[in-house]
Design a binder for these strands. Structure first.
Lengths: 207, 207
DNA sequence: GTCGATTTTGACCGAATGGTCAGAAGAAGT
DNA sequence: ACTTCTTCTGACCATTCGGTCAAAATCGAC
């Protein structure tokens, strides 16, 4: 066996694979797939380029592994939305979980954004498959809540889109937000959490 | 004069410069600055690469001209927000204008998104200058409306951010939205317009 | 149709890109 | 200390990148 790609076995493999993935996340999320270079990633990981290619077969390989690792985490908050819970509380909790993801994993958010911006060629299958299934399912739950009068009568798909948009915005457009909220040391997340909580509470409250 | 860069004079210059900018917008907005290549742009414009470089001095030149042309249009809707108008009506109109921009100029939106995602190195000055000034100004207006009890008491900056996020999402994440709203021929914009109108109407209504 | 200016092209350049490979260096068990 | 497997490296390769240049083709005013 020449390539340790199947699963990481030794401690060195563990450590270096992780360093590569971490460095690649940094670089891919900043420059997109085509804009990132192996030399950049290798340097950020503290390895030589050939050594990097000892652990991964190709640039696409690294990118694919990052995306695969991302998607599970990314969809978790929506999965946790409980059909049996309190409707408004569930959605408010979902918004907060998604916002925390933006705060704690901004690079993952930007990697995802980069991929979608470029037409999502490498994850089209997952989007049309697992993601669509999950979204359709939760949309049906939300629609049920609306029909039952437990929340206001809104379109569940656009609700989900707007939650994605508002929460991910704080990770993806972080540069812009930082430049506008100027005063250094200002953390936008507490304010964002309060604002979004109010936004969706008011939206969902039945008239 | 060797380079016709100052302003376009002949009909050929007009036509080709426009074709180049249009092709470049397409390519840059899809792949980002580093991911785009001059060959791609030249081919999309129907010109040879050296011919392309006869009209623009460099790749950065093309990109800079696109961004400069973009920003004015992009900030117009916020500029039109009238301090003397009806507060809720003004903000609802702003949301709709911004959404129309996403519908009619999705490539411009993605170009901008790409730039911000990569840390906005090439437009930092504008963002910290004109944009911040404009946003600060309109935020003060909105805060005034809130203090006067004409709209609910919300943070004006996060309101603006959320409007940017929700409206631009329909352009920037168009690929994802299309894959989830599956049924071909579905135009998400009418639904989005209705949803966002409701979202912000409810938010702004004073309790 | 002539002639000068504009426009276009093919051939080319140095640097950077993703990737290969043979072999050196290091780890680990015996 | 010897052997074996793993890890790492330098030298190298084909291709693509942004960009140049001299010369050819085309245009437009007269």
């Amino acid at each position: 066996m020449n390539k340790p790609d199947g699963r990481r076995r030794t401690r060195i493999q563990q450590k270096n694979s992780q360093a590569i993935l971490d460095a690649a996340l940094e670089v891919f999320s900043s420059y997109g797939f085509r804009g990132a270079t192996l030399d950049q990633i290798a340097q950020a990981a503290g390895l030589s380029k050939p050594n990097l290619l000892y652990y991964f077969d190709s640039k696409e390989d690294i990118h694919a592994e990052l995306l695969a690792g991302l998607l599970d985490t990314w969809l978790d908050p929506l999965r946790e939305l409980d059909p049996a819970g309190d409707p408004i509380g569930e959605i408010r909790a979902y918004v907060q979980r998604k916002l925390e993801l933006s705060r704690d994993y901004p690079r993952e958010s930007r990697l995802f954004a980069n991929e979608i911006l470029q037409g999502a060629p490498r994850i089209e299958a997952v989007l049309r498959g697992d993601l669509k299934t999950l979204v359709d399912d939760r949309a049906a739950v939300i629609r049920g809540w609306a029909r039952a009068g437990k929340i206001a009568n809104i379109d569940p798909y656009h609700l989900i889109f707007s939650i994605w948009a508002t929460t991910q915005h704080y990770a993806d457009f972080d540069a812009q937000i930082g430049m506008i909220l100027d005063e250094p040391g200002t953390d936008p997340f507490p304010g964002a959490a309060a604002f979004l909580d109010l936004l969706y509470t008011k939206l969902l409250r039945p008239d």
